[in-house]
Structures are given as C-alpha cells and as structure tokens.
C-alpha cells in the first residue's frame, strides 16, 4: 500500500483534525460526537440539513457544509455508516425550529442508522424527514429502483435542498422538491483501478491491468459488466447512452451534467469525456443547462469517473443557480 498516512486506524480522526483547523471559519466539531456542523448552526427559522455516511469520499460529505448546502455531517469510518447516536446529535445541533431534513445514500447501513436516529429525534418532538438518493442506474434494474444505491447524485440533492432551505422553505416542501430532484437524477460510472482500503492495505476489488468495469460502486462494489479498456469516446458513449435511456431523458429536455472523478482520474481525462457527453446530448437534442466537472464524490484513489444527468425544471434551475458557500463547493 502506498499512502501517506500514519496509522490506518487513525485516518478518519487525523483527517478531521486537519479539516477542522483548515476550515474553522466555516464549521466546528461537536464536542462529544464525530459530527461537523456549520459554524452558525442552528440557523433560526431555516430547516436544518443533515447528511453523512462513511468516510473516504472527499470532498463528500464534509466539503459540502456551508451556506446554501448542508448544515451538519455525521462522519462514519471509512466506507461505514455513522452510528445512530452521531446522526441524532447532528439533528439536534442543526434544528433551528423548522425541523430537519436528512439526505442520505441508499445503503442499508445508512438507511437503518439514519432511520433510527430520525425516530429518536421525532420522539423528542423535532420534525424530521428524509430523502434517500438512488441515482446509480447500474445497481438495480429500473423496476427495482428502491434497491439502487446513491452515488454522485447526492451532490445535486444537497445543492437543491440547500438553496431551498436558504429561501425559507418548510420541511414538507424540501422533501417534495428533494425527492423530485433525486428522481430526475441518474448516474453511471466506470472504474479501471480500485482504491486501497487503509485498514487492510488491500484493493477494494481485483481487476486486470487492461480491464475496466462499468457500474462499480462508490465503495468498490462490483459493477455490472467487466470489459477491456476502451477509449474515452467509446466508454463515455456506452455510459451516457445508458443514463439517457434510463429516465429516459428526451429531446427538448434541459439537464445539469455532472462529471465526477472517482479519485485518481485526471481533470484532463474528465474534460475529454465531457466533450463526448456534450456531443451525445446534442445528437439527442438535449440541452445542457449547467455543467460541473471535477472531483465531487470520490472513492479515495479509485481510477474512473461517472456521468450524472439531472432533468431540470424551472424550480430546479433556480435552485441550481443559487449561490452556495461550501468548504469545497462554492458558487457565486
């Protein structure tokens, strides 16, 4: 294993220590739990937004703390859901009197831990709703969408509900719009190199030198198809067409495009791939409304990228356009 770490069991703690010092102007850590919250939380009269999950996805999740995005993150161990207590403390820390929205990916660990924390907080009289992200088209067929996992689409959800909360929307409205944003969002990724688990020093999956795998999950979960390496255009076409077919996105639609690097794929490669996405969308008469390219939700040093499309409507356009001031996601 070639990683600049000290002790494997300390990677999350030491990363958090550095992160909190570096971003002390924007956030703070709760004294008793591994939870980071926006510096001015709870914001009175605003619905609080809590997200979280396993570590290893930088800049997700903690890089999205800030005005116009999320208020708190419950931080888990590497690729492991945060426990109930942590989510519960996060909820309490950001409730500004209008309730709290939980945003999480569709993983059984996250769903159970967030769900139990939600019940605990509700029992104490805090209104809590949740939106579960399931944008990965590779992880289950369309007729079993409930079983799909959440990947880069979670960034779109944070952006949309974060903007909505700043506008003063109530909890019900946020759940409604958040749910629609998730439904309108579809992603598919490809990886050619696994990440190395700090705890074991072993790769998260095995793959040949000249192979790539379509649909690999954010934790190295095997995907749907293993193939020989392809050129940027070929693989981008393969992925993008599947994403388009899934919703399906249709001629005349407007979309936000998110090209997400999984950790060690260069921005140079991502722009080459985006070029092809743009051509394919043009061929389908689908108009690009906004574009995001970079590392938004990684899997440590995994090599690969994903393509996310979100179908826009007037409300989603307004929310995507709104400014935000996250640690790693700033938009003017």
């Amino acid at each position: 294993m070639k990683k600049f770490i000290n002790r494997p069991e300390n990677v999350v703690e030491e990363m958090l220590e550095g992160f909190v010092i570096a971003n002390a102007g924007k956030l703070r850590r709760l004294p008793t739990e591994r939870v980071l919250v926006r510096k001015d939380a709870p914001v009175k009269g605003k619905v609080g937004i809590v997200t979280g999950g396993g570590s290893g996805h930088k800049p997700a999740f903690i890089g999205y703390i800030g005005k116009g995005l999320v208020d708190a993150v419950a931080v888990g161990d590497i690729f492991a859901a945060p426990p109930v207590q942590r989510v519960y403390e996060a909820i309490k820390a950001v409730d500004g009197g209008k309730g709290v929205l939980l945003c999480l990916g569709n993983y059984s660990g996250d769903v159970m831990n967030f769900g139990m924390a939600q019940e605990l907080a509700q029992a104490e009289g805090i209104p809590v709703e949740s939106v579960i992200v399931n944008d990965d088209v590779a992880s289950s067929p369309k007729d079993r969408m409930d079983n799909r996992r959440g990947v880069a689409g979670e960034v779109i959800l944070w952006k949309v509900v974060g903007a909505l909360a700043e506008e003063g929307a109530d909890l019900a409205k946020m759940k409604e719009v958040g749910t629609r944003a998730v439904f309108n969002t579809r992603s598919l990724g490809v990886a050619h190199t696994p990440c190395i688990m700090p705890s074991s020093g072993k790769p998260s999956f095995e793959i040949g030198d000249n192979e790539m795998e379509i649909g690999v999950g954010h934790h190295g979960e095997p995907g749907i198809k293993r193939m020989s390496m392809m050129s940027a255009d070929e693989v981008t076409e393969l992925i993008t067409l599947q994403v388009i077919e899934d919703l399906p996105f249709q001629s005349g639609d407007e979309v936000t495009v998110l090209i997400n690097g999984l950790g060690s794929t260069s921005l140079l490669e991502m722009y080459i791939c985006f070029r092809k996405v743009a051509q394919i969308l043009a061929d389908h008469s689908i108009k690009i409304y906004r574009t995001y390219i970079g590392e938004f939700f990684t899997s440590m040093e995994m090599g690969g990228f994903s393509v996310t499309l979100t179908k826009m409507d007037d409300e989603l356009k307004r929310l995507m356009d709104a400014p935000c001031d996250g640690v790693h996601f700033i938009q003017h």
Binding site: D77, Q85, G109
Partner: peptide, 8 residues
C-alpha cells in the same frame, strides 16, 4: 455507537 449496517 456501532454504525455500518451491522450496528442496528
């Protein structure tokens, strides 16, 4: 305190 799926 368990976390992950096995905690619950």
């Amino acid at each position: 305190s368990g976390g992950a799926a096995m905690g619950p």
